[in-house]
Simulated scan of single mutants.
Amino acid sequence: MPRTPRSPARRVRVRTDGPLLVEGPVELIMDDGTVVTSDRFCVALCACRRSRRFPWCDTSHRRRDRR
């Protein structure tokens, strides 16, 4: 989604040991070219790749062993 002078920048919050929180709506292009969308006001994107719903976060990162 290219930005135009009228479109505001998306805000992304990076959280330590957690998902990326992105103000929506969002459109994601996956490695294989598949496009996934969400019209929610805020989405959590998986950063650990443990989610069963990848690219959406399902809080699987909470079950990670910490050393």
Rank of each mutant, 00 (worst) to 15 (best):
F41S: 13
F41E: 13
A44M: 07
T4Y: 08
L20H: 12
R10K: 15
T37Q: 10
R63I: 00
G24M: 05
D58Y: 02
R62Q: 04
V26H: 01
T59M: 12
V36Y: 09
C48L: 04
S7W: 04
C42F: 02
S7N: 14
T16W: 05
C42V: 13
R40G: 11
V26K: 01
R11S: 11
G18Y: 02
R40N: 12
A9F: 09
T16Q: 14
R50T: 04
V26P: 07
D58H: 03
V36C: 09
D32G: 10
S38Y: 02
H61V: 08
G18K: 10
C57S: 03
V36A: 07
R11W: 00
A44W: 01
M30F: 03
T4A: 08
R40I: 04
T37P: 00
R64Q: 12
F41P: 14
S51N: 12
A9M: 11
R11F: 00
R67C: 00
R62P: 00
S7L: 13
V12Q: 01
R3K: 15
A44K: 11
R11A: 04
D65M: 13
P25L: 10
R3P: 02
V26R: 07
R10S: 13
G24K: 03
R49Q: 12
C42W: 02
H61F: 05
